[in-house]
Amino acid sequence: MSPAPPVVAEHLKKRFGSVSAVEDLSLTVEEGKVYGFLGPNGAGKTTTIRMLLGLIAPDGGSVRIFGHDIRRDFKLAIRCVGAMVEGPAFYPFLTAHKNLQLFGRLSGGVPAARVDEILDRVGLLRRAGQKVGGFSQGMRQRLGIALAMLEKPRLLVLDEPTNGLDPQGTREIRELLRQIRDEGETTVLVSSHLLGEMERICDRVAVISQGRMLREGSLDELLGADDGVVELVVEPDRTSAAAEVLTRRFQIEPRRIRRGHLELIVDGRAGASEVNRVLVEEGLAVHGLHSRRRSLEQVFVELTGEVSDIQ
């Protein structure tokens, strides 16, 4: 029997009054992967995560964490998990070190050395003795991640870990997640409303909107879904000449034309090199010809047809 996957959620449903926050959502997170859970604000990411962690009861569906049902075998399931849900939370009147120690105590106690180690890892060791009340948003966020990682969980669940951080802070957290992934001991489920931000570190992503799963798959599956979109860069004043050559020799209508840039669909790579050869033959200097991967943002816009709410 293969080991149970870190997260198997089936047909999750949750309503708040008349608002349906999550509708028939199923997902499986495989061991050792970074799984991105992406969607705009209000998509139902936090609600889903709260159901995964047993913080709220779903109206329907089931959750298994490493094979343990989160409602029936809560303690067994949750022991494998470290989580930060909807922002960090600490006692402002206690120091960073004391806060971590206090929460560590709830599952039996964590050595002070481990607390220092994890504080060092998120770059807060120098602040260990300071009260959390005086911490900046970024420091709290990092402390929240430290708390989630404190007991070396097999599954790390981070709900919008980069929320409210500046680009530098965001980079640091991305770097941290990349390190965790490379160590390969922890499976990570990370949510974000910044679609572009997470695509660089996720192995798999789920895109949700209005409580429904829009798309789920590996990054290649999602981003490479329209192979063959090629961007062609030529001399700006030869743009129309290039378009004319494409139409005449290949019967290709460029999808979009800007000065010096043409976007077209060719059939695989051979097609691209053929385009290149013919253009040069026709006396047009080709400055660039590259297949253009879509960003998650674009995937999202295509899936929903909406642009609002995404940054």
Partner: peptide
């Protein structure tokens, strides 16, 4: 209230605590 107002209750309830 000290745990609810600081939101720390969610940190407690995501540990092996019912």
């Amino acid at each position: 209230a000290i745990d609810v107002s600081n939101s720390t209750v969610k940190c407690i309830l995501t540990r092996p605590v019912t």
